[in-house]
Design a protein around this nucleic acid. Structure first.
Lengths: 190, 190
DNA sequence: GAACACACTTGACCTAGATCAAGAAATCAA
DNA sequence: TTGATTTCTTGATCTAGGTCAAGTGTGTTC
């Protein structure tokens, strides 16, 4: 029987069944209630998690407002990569927006995955490179698209976010205001 | 005697002298004249280069304009990571904006660096993670900063670009127009 | 089923930054 | 040196999207 996690790992990585099980075995379930923090700015992020259900918001507090950097949903990984990899203080807050279940691997296990699974280092590189590419696209969207185009792009690719998350957070991660999204929506109803 | 490349590798990576020389030995000089293309959209990027001198512009052609994604200067690496790592068609054009010398490693050697330098896979991961973090900051700048703030940030961190590159390209990579930069400059002279 | 808290919409107005057009400067070419 | 190009600045105007404020749902809670 395959867990969600193994199933997900398989779609991303070319592991055989044994490696799959080996990697997955290091992840332990962790439960977050709505409002709980997975990570707070300034702490060290010593874990990486796969989201089984629920959703997490990555954001930063500024003096006068907060900025949502991304919302992580079911089937994706979440961590503060810079903090995990470089052992630097976390830049982001990560908070559950609903009751959430994640599978978590601790940094000490994460750092030793390569000892157990020879393919791990290459796989990990591919994974991080994939994340890099995603961010490249996101930068490009700010350089080349209007608010409406960015909204449509997100809506097509992450429809699940829109059904579960208050508009203000979606707007923030798109670099616009909730009012603007509201107007885009009305316009699209003709 | 250390080459620029070895020197640079050393500042980023914790290689000993032997590994440094081993990695550097795979890089061969390549000369680009102003206007030459390092890479064109749709081709496969089968190399990674370190810029010894000169500068390269990464950009995309849209129907009605072009968008500059980044300008790479002396002392940095350049490639299309997605194309190199996933063997996908390049998304970007990369063109020399001045006579440029780079040290280039071919994909076949790059893919085998781990065989010669055991530390390579970990090092490479750290490097790509660092690039990821840089892009995260860039996304954040679009979510949280005004045109003037983004301009100042780039000016502080990459002053060399401003002395060598026409304004229109800098403006594009900042997501604003050349006129806006011109006005920001005047304002800052009081 | 009031009263309250949130989320979302809508309108009126405002502003950062874009667009367009015309000049200055600087750079290059011969 | 002079003309030709390209780059940069400046002004006038416009507009996408922001801000502010007032509704309108739609749950929740007691």
């Amino acid at each position: 029987m395959m867990t969600d996690l193994e199933n997900y790992l398989q779609t991303y990585f070319e592991f055989d069944q044994a490696d799959l099980a080996r990697v997955a075995s290091f992840f332990k379930p962790e439960i977050l209630k709505k409002g709980d923090y997975y990570l707070k700015t300034g702490k060290f992020c010593n874990k990486l998690s796969f989201i089984k259900s629920g959703l997490l918001r990555i954001y930063v507090d500024l003096e006068d407002r907060e900025v949502t950097q991304w919302i992580c949903t079911q089937g994706y990984f979440v961590t503060d990569l810079a903090s995990l990899v470089f052992a630097s203080p976390a830049r982001w807050n990560i908070q559950a927006m609903a009751d959430t279940v994640v599978y978590t691997i601790q940094k000490e296990d994460y750092d030793r995955l390569g000892d157990y699974v020879p393919k791990w280092p290459v796989t990990e590189k591919l994974f991080i490179a994939h994340c890099f590419t995603t961010l490249e696209d996101r930068v490009f969207s700010f350089l080349s698209m209007t608010a409406e185009q960015r909204y449509n792009l997100l809506f097509e690719s992450h429809r699940d976010i829109f059904t579960q998350v208050p508009l203000q957070y979606i707007a923030s991660m798109l670099g616009m205001t909730p009012e603007t999204i509201s107007r885009i929506r009305r316009k699209q109803l003709n």
